[in-house]
Design a protein around this nucleic acid. Sequence first.
RNA 1: GCCGGGGUGGCGGAAUGGCAGACGCUGCGGACUUAAAAUCCGCUGGGGGAAACCCCGUACGGGUUCAAGUCCCGUCCUCGGCACCA
Length: 808
Amino acid sequence: MGYEPNIIEPKWRKVWNEAHLNEARDDSARPKYYCLDMFPYPSGSGLHVGHWRGYVLSDVFSRYKRLRGYEVLHPMGWDAFGLPAENDAIKKGIHPSVGTARNIANFKLQLEQMGAMFDWTREINTSSPEYYKFTQWIFLQLFDMGLAYRKEMPINWCPSCKTGLANEEVVDGACERCGAEVTKKNLNQWMLRITAYAERLLTDLETLEWPDKVKKMQANWIGKSEGARIRFAVKGDTDQQIEVFTTRPDTLYGATYMVLAPEHPLVEVITTVEQHAFVQKYVREALAKSALTRQMQDKSKTGQFTGAYAINPINDEALPIYIADYVLMDYGTGAIMAVPGHDERDFAFAVAYQLPIRRVIAEKGVAANVPLKEAYTGEGLLVHSAAFDGLSITEGKRAILAHLEASGRAEAVVSYKLRDWVFARQRYWGEPIPLIHCASCGTVPVPESDLPVLLPDVERYEPTGTGESPLAAMESFVQTTCPKCQGPARRETDTMPQWAGSCWYFLRFADPHNQEQLFSKEKVDHWLPVDMYIGGVEHAVLHLLYARFFTKVLYDRKVISFNEPFLRLFNQGMLTLNGAKMSKSKGNVVSPDELVERYGTDTVRLYELFVGPPEVDAEWNPRAIDGMARFLSRVYRLMEERTVHAVGRQHAERAVLKARHRLIKQVTERIESFRFNTVVSAFMEFVSVMNDQSGALDRETLEAFVICMSPLAPHLAEECWRMLGHKTSVFLAEWPVFDPSYLQEDEVEIVIQVNGKIKDRVTVAMDAPLDALLEQVKARELVDRALAGKAIVKPIYVPGKLLNLVVR
RNA sequence: GCCGGGGUGGCGGAAUGGCAGACGCUGCGGACUUAAAAUCCGCUGGGGGAAACCCCGUACGGGUUCAAGUCCCGUCCUCGGCACCA
């Protein structure tokens, strides 16, 4: 017969489905394990082999955990709101839900033929009203907690997508989605106060078993810095003061000028009549620069003197006040004290505008008066700082801050780079924000009993580009009554960003069909947190930060009893073809569909694992998959030829026993540590040893082999399991244990080195004593030749491994 | 500029400080076959040698060690993240 994957694979999938083998039971006595994939956005182009990679990893791990005795929750769903569906709808004139449903059907078909043990009874779709009803409910909690607020401010705006963007969605000044250059637009926006959680989002990272890289990326994004807020009076204007944020209060004596961001509200107030025209011109030019040019251009410094002076609170020195676009309005206070001697940017500005540069920190052994050729940012002691001279930087920070605090002119503060989250989108295909604007009651939440606020059918999906969503044009949607006063009112017409649904979907999987609440607390506390989360590193800050934020909010709201959603995170590397990330636009995608048809799912699964270390990017080699197909055929043949005999065989050869226990050990250890490429190698070596054996193989060995293989090649393993006479699924079996005593060698080949160079090999007893070994070794010709005329200074003996003779 | 990851055969990669190149792909040779495919077996880092064997070799330069792909210092290249964050 031979190995016919296209027959056995659908056969066993059907059997598994009918036996409900992939379903996670809420009431199981087994310990739970929650293994989650980052759920996909169902795009029109379907899955390629790169997408498969993460799903294969998680499925192997899930199946392994099941065999280790866990009740495994391994669900799948659809992140179905999003711009591509909407853009497609605009182009083709069909409703986004139609295209989305079609894409989901296609994705599901592809995922099913992957043979993964997804529990499809828990499938969810973020764009279904049953789901987004609760996304809206969560928004109402945020609103009630004061974490959702509306503010008019210049936000990132993508002119191509015609919507506002969160900070996290701007990459190198361009829209993360479409690559268009992002501009600023003044909009009255719904924001989420994620900054209120900055400290917890940062410190709780320590509790997570995540790649360091991702933790660092989040920590950097949050960008905590500890420093001081210091107030400088404006000279001649007792009403005004300039508040600055600095991490270096120790350098206060080195401040030689001040800088305000061009947008700073005080600019208007303090600028002198003579400077007014210049300042106005500079502000206009600065605002006209896009985020891209302001950030990405060369770092040459420009600015403009305001004509005003500030008073240094430590020594009453008058400091000229400039405006310059190297100071950003939305970090710190939008104003700085400039210390050119010890800050590179201030140094560059001071040089350009011929401002004084003063040394206030000196390294040990450097005189206080040595002029600075560049900003000195290293360690040292305070100089030119009056009573504070001689203090270290750390002491200086504390002492100067304490001095200013005493007179109420400064305080210690912590600053974060993280900004609040622009949460409104001026697009159609998203969750309507469940709020109502009433002329007399203000902004009123939609009552919970009225949820969901259904996304209405509109005739035109086109974004207006005016900062209003397409929903605004739909009077039947907009016009409503105020839940409070019953007077006429208008609905909020902005929708939520695509991230909203994915901020809590992992919770919904615990109780996906609950109509009354977003989930039962009991079920969510049983299954969550997620034990293993697998997905691409591209979500390191976006989705993962937002989901952590939502989790903490729900925890504070006592909706759940844990405050981190994902205990362990694994980022699979991407697959490349011709060195480039697979993408439809580059035309270098490899579709799994034809491969499955040609080789069978198990072969494709195996190659996805074998292609390289799972966390590293790997190049897809279209030829190498043949090797996996050959290997699985060999497995099938081995089973076919040996099974008949295996049933009766009682005793295994020692070599077989050893290979069996070695296989179990290696596979177990390597799956646990996610070294799947070497798991595959272990199987190949094992099969090769079996093929070298003549005659029948014993049942126990074959069974151990089949169980170990079942997470990787589930269909073939099931077929082999039944060949061995079993009437129930291999996935109901138990993972085999290895006995280290079989791995003990009596005799080993050890390497003989002379001065570290390999000269010979001898086979000796495992515990051969050094003396006897030396005698034996000296008698050997190769060793003798290398020793000629030399004396052994020291023998280094590692029993079972090597003998190194150090000679002179 | 700052913070990470990585440089090992023709290719993907393997190697608790202890035999570098497991396993697979490619290529070459052989068996089977009327023939081909499939399958099976052997070889496949570089140089020298008839052979036994010898020398070189994990980006580059140093160091630690009996012993370094692995640890330490420096350099180069490459990929990713952040980027005027005071």
